[in-house]
């Protein structure tokens, strides 16, 4: 088998211009959209955790919370996959700078917040979720690989799964290495079977040896080129906003993932 199907039950989205999926849909239908406030609400976190949590966690929790709310599923029951191409780049910059100057002054809190699974940790703690949680990356293919991982989990285990893909803007010398210049996150609740809350059916097909087809085109100046996750997720999110369409995502360096969207009956 080289294809599998999942049903989308919830969609979360955050960028400096779009505060949720409704805003994207409005924009795609030609309506004016008010940008969200700069401060991420991340209301799924208790207030004290929200103060402590780093930016990468606030972003991931915000979009995760939106998707779960839309699905009307219980967050505590959902296995979750958190994907990020670069993790918390602000903390990476802080840690490397501190280690170069005064290593024994490294902040213990920032150290434990530096793990790639910090968003998964904060999320499962805030929602009381004891299910499997994962944190993954796949370079520029992190969104497609995350979608494949969450969909295969959902189908193999016959359980709904939360997928969260997010990257914050980079900072410092290491930030310049990956060109991530803006915050972007999106999240999907994916179910193995059609249900009352199904918004769309996604048929995922692996198309190997697709190297050249996956090379990005020349930069067009579009905003989503300033974030690895935004650039790769954007075609699918637009299809979701329009309710139809096909797109091809990178799932690995030469592995394409064709995503065909079908309306649900």
């Amino acid at each position: 088998m080289s294809s599998l199907s999942v049903f989308v039950e919830g969609i979360g989205l955050w960028s400096p211009a779009l505060g949720d999926f409704a805003a994207l849909r409005a924009q795609e239908h030609g309506q004016a959209v008010t940008p969200p406030p700069a401060k991420l609400p991340a209301t799924f976190l208790p207030a004290n955790e929200r103060r402590r949590a780093p930016e990468s966690v606030l972003l991931a929790v915000e979009v995760a919370g939106q998707a779960v709310a839309m699905s009307e599923r219980s967050a505590s029951e959902l296995p979750c996959v958190f994907s990020s191409a670069y993790g918390d780049q602000l903390i990476s910059d802080y840690m490397c700078a501190t280690l170069a100057l005064a290593p024994t002054e490294l902040s213990p809190t920032r150290f434990h917040n530096s793990v790639h699974n910090a968003p998964a940790g904060y999320w499962t703690i805030a929602t009381g979720c004891h299910a499997a949680s994962s944190a993954i990356c796949a370079g520029p293919a992190s969104f497609g690989a995350g979608l494949l991982e969450a969909a295969s989990f959902s189908q193999a285990e016959q359980r709904p799964v939360l997928l969260v893909c997010s990257d914050i803007a980079g900072s410092g010398p290491v930030g310049e290495m990956n060109g991530s210049r803006t915050n972007f996150g999106c999240a999907l609740v994916l179910a193995p079977e059609q249900g009352l809350h199904s918004l769309a059916k996604l048929v995922l097909t692996l198309e190997p040896h697709a190297g050249l087809a996956l090379h990005p085109g020349p930069p067009s100046g579009a905003w989503h080129e300033a974030n690895a996750t935004a650039a790769s997720a954007w075609p699918l999110l637009q299809n979701l906003a329009h309710g139809e369409g096909h797109c091809t995502l990178a799932a690995a360096a030469t592995l394409a993932l064709r995503v065909s969207m079908e309306k649900v009956a």
């Binding site: 699974n117 944190a135 990356c137 040896h209």
Partner: peptide
């Protein structure tokens, strides 16, 4: 993804390729 990217290239593998970092 540095590790998995390198090993995928070194082994010439072209299937699903994932870094797990928990």
């Amino acid at each position: 993804h540095s590790l998995a990217g390198f090993v995928a290239e070194a082994l010439g593998l072209e299937g699903p390729c994932l870094t797990v970092s928990t």
